[in-house]
């Protein structure tokens, strides 16, 4: 199953490579990984998307927790949560395709953020499925480039993943 795991890490040099090293050394699957400092500059928050059997996911969580730099860990998939990913997509936008692309942008509540005579850059935020769906919907052959941030997530409700 697909799991989204949030980790609060000490904002130390090398913390990220410990996580990456753990996944490659133990042969765990890693779909995406995003990381940035939090409001507390001594902490980074990492969101990890991984796929595996329940046993493997359990080991992944234990192994992540075991890293000395890991302060806290939460498997968002275990509770109600919100997930967002951002995409920047560059498409060929010749005259005859422009209307269709604009319509798509509107339907998905995306934004066109760069325009030239022959191209658009479109920004879209949503769940990973929504982003997949957008990519699917772009007519054959128009995609020039896709950049995805990988999902980030947060639990619903008042509780926070903090110290």
């Amino acid at each position: 199953m697909r799991h989204i795991i949030s980790v609060l890490l000490e904002n130390e040099a090398g913390a990220l490579s410990r996580v990456a090293g753990l996944f490659s050394a133990r042969g765990y699957n890693i779909e995406s990984l995003t990381v940035a400092p939090t409001d507390d500059p001594t902490l980074s928050r990492m969101t990890l998307v991984t796929i595996g059997s329940e046993e493997i996911i359990e080991q992944i969580k234990k192994q992540l927790n075991k890293l000395i730099d890991t302060v806290k860990l939460l498997d968002l998939t275990e509770g109600r949560h919100i997930e967002r990913e951002m995409m920047l997509i560059k498409v060929r936008a010749a005259k005859e395709d422009r209307e269709e692309l604009k319509r798509l942008t509107e339907i998905f509540r995306a934004k066109i953020i760069d325009v030239t005579a022959t191209s658009f850059v479109i920004e879209l935020t949503g769940t990973s499925q929504k982003i997949d769906a957008f990519i699917q919907a772009v007519p054959e052959g128009l995609i020039v480039e896709v950049v995805r941030s990988g999902p980030i997530g947060i639990a619903r409700g008042e509780k926070g993943l903090t110290l």
């Binding site: 046993e55 359990e58 080991q59 192994q63 927790n65 075991k66």
Partner: peptide
């Protein structure tokens, strides 16, 4: 003492 040893 190491949770990751358990059910590994």
């Amino acid at each position: 003492v190491d949770p990751s040893s358990i059910s590994k």
